[in-house]
Design a protein around this nucleic acid. Structure first.
Length: 417
DNA sequence: CGTAAATTTGGTGAATCCTC
DNA sequence: GAGGATTCACCAAATTTACG
């Protein structure tokens, strides 16, 4: 059977299976072998029963017969090595932020230092603690189950728990928001019920505070150790006198200013940049090479953008590949973990129905073009319409998009719809 | 009505306090 | 003394208000 496998926004592979796999597990191991994927992913498939919307693939029977489109979903970072007992050097995390999503390839080591390209997990994966803490927790959990008596967490234990949790958080981002911290705290109490705080509203409010404090203190540590992602946000420079005009990362900016990959310097990455400049001059551009080199030089590029704040024209000169369509998407994804096109299309779908209603109500206000367009849509069968399958008709869609923009400006101004 | 100024709000790092 | 908790000054974004 034939599969189309969506690994990342710009990496979509075609795979031929010799036969229908016996189970989801078989399918996963086959894919991880042929596509060289790391373990730790789940699969979704486009379900023809529901207008090709994505559904979790739990049973192999659900997979369409001859052809199917799959999406690889990367899970949260695996637990840290439990043999690694406390006293982890603070810089380690920075260099440990390997790309969980990265397709394992000979080049994958160069991108080690870039933060993992995954969104904040829906349920945070609490890492394994050191052996003694795990054992004590297990015991306390048993006691809690029988007597509902929560554990009075001793100092060393709290220290170890916060340490590991904060490091796991840093694997994803250095500045999680309040909601994300809450999700960590609730996941912690869910995994280890003995850590619940009885009588409190949620049972984990205290942990939220503790994790917040720990994050702050940990950032201070990293700053001292020279982690650029957090030191860039230093407001008062005590020494060196560097005036910090640099903003802290905005909400969406996850990879605001990552450190260089291990072993790389400004100069070595500059060389990589020059290779790309040459490649871009060629008639037939090797897109795989560009993609890999752009990933590799991400930290240098961010450094330039953040610290020098060059004009767009200068960036265009130094990083011509950044203006390729795919690379725009990739860069956006690297910075914000948001799939630009998918998000755009999803929003488009979301607002299509209400906007269509608006157009119908106020046909006169939008001119002839939208009128003919609506008539055309009316000619489609009702089921197609209800399923918003207008997306198939690209021309209409393009027109619609223009009208969306027009309408949204209109709505903003009027503010009355 | 649009823009500029003023004010509020939320979040930060640094310094310090406090407890084990 | 280490490290979690608290306080405080500061900044910038968001929101409100004032003005032409």
């Amino acid at each position: 059977m034939l599969l189309r496998v969506h690994i990342s926004p710009t990496n979509i592979r075609r795979v031929e299976l010799p036969e229908r796999p016996a189970s989801v597990g078989h399918l996963k191991s086959f894919l991880s072998e042929t596509l060289q994927l790391k373990s730790g992913f789940s699969l979704q498939f486009e379900d023809p029963d529901f207008n090709n919307e994505l559904c979790n693939l739990n049973d192999i029977k659900e997979l369409p017969a001859a052809k199917a489109t799959l999406k690889v979903l990367w899970e949260a970072s695996p637990p840290l090595d439990s043999t690694d007992t406390s006293s982890v050097s603070s810089l380690d995390t920075a260099s440990m932020t390997s790309c969980q999503n990265d397709v394992q390839s000979p080049e994958s080591s160069v991108s080690r230092n870039l933060r993992s390209v995954e969104q904040w997990p829906s349920t945070f994966n609490i890492p394994a603690f050191s052996l003694d803490v795990e054992l004590r927790l297990r015991k306390a959990n048993e006691i809690y189950q029988q007597t509902k008596k929560p554990l009075n967490v001793p100092r060393d234990m709290k220290c170890e728990i916060l340490d590991k949790i904060v490091q796991a958080i840093f694997e994803i981002k250095a500045y999680p928001d309040a909601y994300e911290v809450q999700s960590v705290a609730s996941a912690l109490v869910q995994k280890h019920p003995c850590l619940a705080e009885p009588g409190k509203r949620t049972g984990w409010d205290g942990w939220v505070m503790s994790i917040k404090f720990k994050l702050g203190n940990y950032r201070a540590k990293l700053r001292e150790a020279g982690c650029s992602e957090v030191s860039v946000n230093t407001k008062r420079k005590s020494h060196e006198g560097v005036t910090a005009t640099i903003k802290k990362p905005k909400r969406a900016e996850v990879n605001f200013l990552p450190d260089h990959p291990e072993g790389q310097t400004d100069d070595s990455l500059e060389e990589v940049r020059l290779i790309m400049i040459d490649e871009m001059k060629k008639k037939r551009i090797d897109s795989t090479l560009i993609q890999q080199k752009m990933q590799e030089t991400f930290s240098l590029r961010r450094k330039e953008v953040v610290e020098i704040q060059p004009l767009v024209e200068e960036i265009r000169e130094r990083w011509p590949a950044l203006f390729l369509k795919d690379e725009i998407c990739m860069e956006f994804f690297r910075i914000s973990n948001v799939d630009l096109l998918e998000k755009f299309n999803m929003s488009l779908e979301k607002y299509t129905t209400p906007l269509l209603k608006l157009y119908r109500k106020r046909t006169d206000a939008f001119g002839e073009e939208i009128k003919t367009l609506l008539d055309k849509l009316d000619e489609q069968s009702p089921t197609q319409l209800t399923q918003c399958s207008i997306s198939v008709y690209t021309t209409e869609r393009r027109l619609l998009r223009q009208h969306h923009m027009y309408a949204s400006r209109h709505v903003n101004r009027a503010g009355q719809y």
